[in-house]
């Protein structure tokens, strides 16, 4: 799967409880029944660690004293794994030990609750950790969004695209990439002013969010250049998607300049079957295709011929 930074920040947060004592699970479930959260249970440290990496909960409640893998070891592992290092962890302990508290906070725990739980305290601490996690996630997500268009920005694209190519290499499912560039954008800016130019950028961005399917990822690559990552999409299917975007954009009547239509050129590079191409090479191929679309008169789509690297080398 593609590393999913785009997971919605909203929705019911998942809380993972790792404790070897069944009673704690029952009690916690009853105590948190009225909270807006989903509670998942793991009875041991090792299983809990695997589950945390797999499901990436918004909060981990972690027992210290467990027979298979103790809480500190689980905490250390969580904090050193890329997928779980940012997840807040609250330590649950049966003992009031200053040394344990110091160790827990040193290892990166956000909080420490002593069993048996005081109901109010438990709820408040869980809520506060969830809220903090939500804010941090929202900020992280915002840093990857283009302010003008609301699309993903270049930084996000770079990461997401290399993830998409890695997934393509693993599973061999089709993958297509489009580079979309507004034609004569500078002239629009110069003639009608920057607010008009901004409207055009936003107009194309809206199309890019509306036209493709849910799993497609639209990004503002820079200036008037956009990218569209289309997983599970053959070059032929991608061409249809881009053709719809191209014709819809062309047909728009712009309030600031109704006399002037806006068009775009598209460079497309996709593969339906396994092909050896790095993310950077693939992106270059789409960029070259875009250049050729511009060369052949703009307002059109050019599809790159992607040949396997072996053939190129021979």
């Amino acid at each position: 799967m593609v590393h999913d930074i785009a997971r919605p920040v909203d929705g019911t947060p998942l809380v993972l409880l790792i404790d070897d004592c069944p009673d704690v699970h029952r009690l916690m479930r009853a105590r948190l029944r009225h909270e807006e959260l989903e509670l998942a249970s793991c009875m041991g440290g090792r299983q809990g660690l695997d589950e945390a990496i797999r499901r990436q909960p918004a909060l981990v409640l972690l027992d210290l004293d467990m027979p298979d893998l103790d809480g500190f070891e689980v905490l250390r592992a969580l904090k050193s794994h890329e997928r779980t290092m940012d997840i807040p962890v609250i330590i649950l302990s049966g003992v009031q030990s200053s040394q344990d508290k110091v160790t827990a906070f040193d290892l990166g725990a956000v909080d420490y609750i002593t069993k048996p739980f005081n109901l109010t305290e438990l709820r408040v601490r869980v809520r506060s950790s969830l809220k903090m996690h939500h804010l941090v996630q929202m900020l992280a997500q915002r840093a990857q969004i283009d302010g003008l268009t609301g699309l993903w920005n270049r930084a996000y694209f770079d990461k997401r695209w290399s993830d998409a190519v890695a997934a393509f290499e693993r599973h061999g499912r089709p993958l297509s990439l489009a580079m979309i560039d507004l034609d004569h954008f500078k002239a629009i800016n110069d003639t009608y002013g920057h607010p008009a130019g901004d409207s055009v950028l936003q107009g194309l961005a809206r199309l890019l969010q509306r036209e493709p399917r849910q799993e497609d990822v639209a990004c503002r690559y820079g200036g008037e250049e956009f990218t569209l990552i289309m997983p599970e999409t053959t070059p032929e299917e991608a061409r249809h998607v881009c053709e719809r975007i191209r014709t819809t954009l062309h047909a728009i009547t712009w309030p600031r300049h109704p006399e002037r239509a806006v068009t775009c050129s598209v460079g497309l590079a996709g593969a339906a079957t396994p092909i050896e191409l790095s993310a950077a090479e693939w992106l270059e191929a789409a960029d070259r295709a875009l250049y050729l679309a511009k060369q052949s008169g703009r307002n059109c789509i050019h599809t790159a011929e992607l040949s396997p690297r072996l053939a190129q080398a021979g």
Partner: peptide, 17 residues
């Protein structure tokens, strides 16, 4: 010891301090 540990963790939670 293990059983006592579990009771120690659980009992107060059920209201049997």
């Amino acid at each position: 010891r293990r059983l006592a540990h579990q009771l120690a963790g659980a009992s107060a939670g059920y209201g049997f301090d």
